[in-house]
Design a protein around this nucleic acid. Structure first.
Lengths: 167, 167
DNA sequence: ATAATAAGTCAGTCTTGTTGACATTGTAAG
DNA sequence: CTTACAATGTCAACAAGACTGACTTATTAT
């Protein structure tokens, strides 16, 4: 129950245990909301969040390799492979053998995969758009700043890289 | 690949698909960081995130009932019971039969449980404190505003209630 | 007395993660 | 050219943590 005071550039920011606690709980509840809408759609297809993540990052980096995806998702190849196999079997993802290095498999969304991705993205983006709209532009930049500071340095690198690629 | 423009109270906020996408990815990577530190501690005890959540909310609302916890955590009683049973067996949580209503079980952290909670809380709060410090006070309020707007209305009610209780 | 509530339990299923071992194919280095 | 390494895939086994459904026990409320 001790309080901690922190000196920032401009002002003195008192971060009480309760403020930090509220931040923790906000993350917990917000993440639940964040995943709620896509989860409903995924259920229709018999997919889970792992499928969503794979589809999301393949869409964002078409032609990415299995190894790349492994790094971004932070799971084992066995775990990813299970998900990827069902997506390929269901004609959601297309696998192309690398030209320069024939060991590599490059991943692309098929037309079906794109359709699924767009449905998932629309659901998740809608909620985020509403949240952003409600909170206003200043809040949005604050939101991103805090989240970036909360990532592991490694993950932040990956995130920044993806951010650059996407304009 | 369409852009959406939103008019806020003060200014015109252009929310491109890429901005929304970045928000989504920020949530994904930040949540990973958010859970990384406590996960390491939990491993020592052979616990998982489910145990963490239970301990967290029992600490925040000592004497809460099983049903309350069920509502906050949003899981089935079978799922919660499994976790709660191990915590009770390990002397982390104490169960007291209700005085007014003897059907109810009121949950409290034991001394051991409190110790665990403090370790977990310290790890998670440290990261959040650093993130808050890095981002500055304005960013912190923006962070909370967006997260609150992102919760389901139901969850927001629970969150607000907990916020009031905790001063 | 009967119905509803709070909690616990048993059994079975599913997703998603893990390890470990091994095979295949292709690239790179000596 | 052979040997080592790398990228991928696969088999098996296991565990956490979620779910459903059915059922019990104790207690309270009608």
């Amino acid at each position: 129950m001790t309080n901690s005071s922190i000196i920032t550039g401009e002002s003195l920011l008192y971060l009480t245990d309760n403020q930090l606690r509220q931040g923790i709980e906000a993350m917990f509840f917000a993440y639940r909301g964040f995943t709620a809408d896509p989860d409903k759609i995924l259920e229709e297809y018999g997919y889970g969040r792992a499928h969503h993540r794979a589809v999301h990052f393949i869409n964002g980096s078409p032609g990415t390799t299995v190894n790349n995806l492994l790094t971004i998702l932070g799971v084992t190849k066995q775990s990813l492979n299970r998900v990827l196999r069902t997506l390929v079997d269901d004609m959601m993802v297309e696998v192309k053998i690398g030209v320069r290095d024939k060991r590599e498999r490059h991943l692309y969304l098929t037309e079906n995969g794109n359709e699924l991705q767009e449905r998932l993205s629309a659901a998740q983006s809608n909620r985020m758009r509403k949240a952003f709209k409600n909170a206003g532009p200043n809040a949005v930049s604050g939101f991103k700043t805090v989240l970036e500071a909360m990532m592991d340095p490694e993950l932040n690198k990956i995130y920044s890289k993806l951010r650059e690629e996407g304009k």
